[in-house]
Design a protein around this nucleic acid. Sequence first.
DNA 1: TCGGACCATATTTTCGAAAATACTAGCTAT
DNA 2: ATAGCTAGTATTTTCGAAAATATGGTCCGA
Lengths: 233, 233
Amino acid sequence: MPETAIRSRKEFGKTIAADITHRLREEIVTCGLPPGEPLRFDVLRERFGASFTTLREALTALTAEGLVDAQEQRGFRVAPVSHQDLVEVTDARVLIEVELIRRSIEKGDDDWEIAVISTLHRLKRIEQRDPEHPLRDPEWKIAHRQFHQALVSACGSATLLSIRAELFDRAERYRHLSANFRPRPRDKAGEHQAIMQAAISRNADQAVQLIETHIRTTADNVAKYAGHLLDAE
Amino acid sequence: MPETAIRSRKEFGKTIAADITHRLREEIVTCGLPPGEPLRFDVLRERFGASFTTLREALTALTAEGLVDAQEQRGFRVAPVSHQDLVEVTDARVLIEVELIRRSIEKGDDDWEIAVISTLHRLKRIEQRDPEHPLRDPEWKIAHRQFHQALVSACGSATLLSIRAELFDRAERYRHLSANFRPRPRDKAGEHQAIMQAAISRNADQAVQLIETHIRTTADNVAKYAGHLLDAE
DNA sequence: TCGGACCATATTTTCGAAAATACTAGCTAT
DNA sequence: ATAGCTAGTATTTTCGAAAATATGGTCCGA
């Protein structure tokens, strides 16, 4: 069986469609495909090397995640950004993340504590190595995501975790949007450390308060430095 | 242009795929396609008269909504039910619905009040007409859905409304599951009336409390009367 | 008897062509 | 001039065939 040529595309799933979904999500979240960009099939076909139908399946999945906007009979485009959407995503994240942190702190066992501590440790290592532009570093992004994921992982609800993941991606897109205009990232390392400590010491109220501030501050910075990109056009 | 033959399928959207998605969702929510049922393409092809790819697109969309379960390379099946899933859906609904009711009560204007009152009125009319098995009556289902939708419609967050809608469908499936085993529906009419009054009089705390009880009681009844169908197989 | 390899069949997944629909530009009539 | 129509082009949407993969049964050797 010819192996590499075909398999090389399937890094993130057994099917090509799942793989394309993953790659497209990545491109959209990092604004490699900018908000509002029309997603024409010939272009995507060229770029991803898949057929109409496979691409369509991926776009349908991403539409449900709020990253793509389907206009019936008139194709797809990258979901536009707006001030309103940023506010909605931020509020929804706070609502859900706060609840999940509480539950995780209540239910988290030893493995949960270990996961929180070790993902933060990795994050800090990466930040030490290259403290410049975190969002530019794919490794930092993954470590950052995994730390926040670990914090809520013991909540016990796959349903809410999946909603949370969706909102996280939508928020991350806004972070990328503002990354190029932000003068210097604030001290996230300290915030993460504080959150971890509150969580491990089972201080739910403090953890919740820190997380809410963390999320809202990030969103405020997006509005501040990328505000001119929102609601444009 | 030949009109009826083709258009007759497209009741709920411009594209066939959107239409099939809608019809499949309906079948799954009402348990016409029972939980866990394998969704084979030849069968669906026969039943819905669409091609592989179109069906695949619909199934992908429903997978994202939590109504279909995709097993890569091994096809799709109706999402299974379980006690755990019921609990998760119920908890998530309470979390979100409570928040949206608060926001709607805070922001709702005259149009919102009118929508709440008139959708409840319609619901009661239908209940008077045929007070027997509400869930069997498609009109009651629609009216019921629209009343609850109206209650939260002024919350101001399309993002949260769409998450709410998804969870509502998943919960409705459980209601249908237990409908055949439930001796007699409890007095929902009274509950709806009370919720409406609390909402209109802007008594947020009471509305929230009533809604939470409403949701949890419904879920408890499902567990009570359809418990034997959960976690089976 | 049992486990594993192999083949035949059933099913899903992917593809590119064909049909349907939207868009654009140029024309006509008012 | 301009609104409305029409034809031609661009793009999406749908289809069924073909490829890839899983499933189930049979045979073989231990």
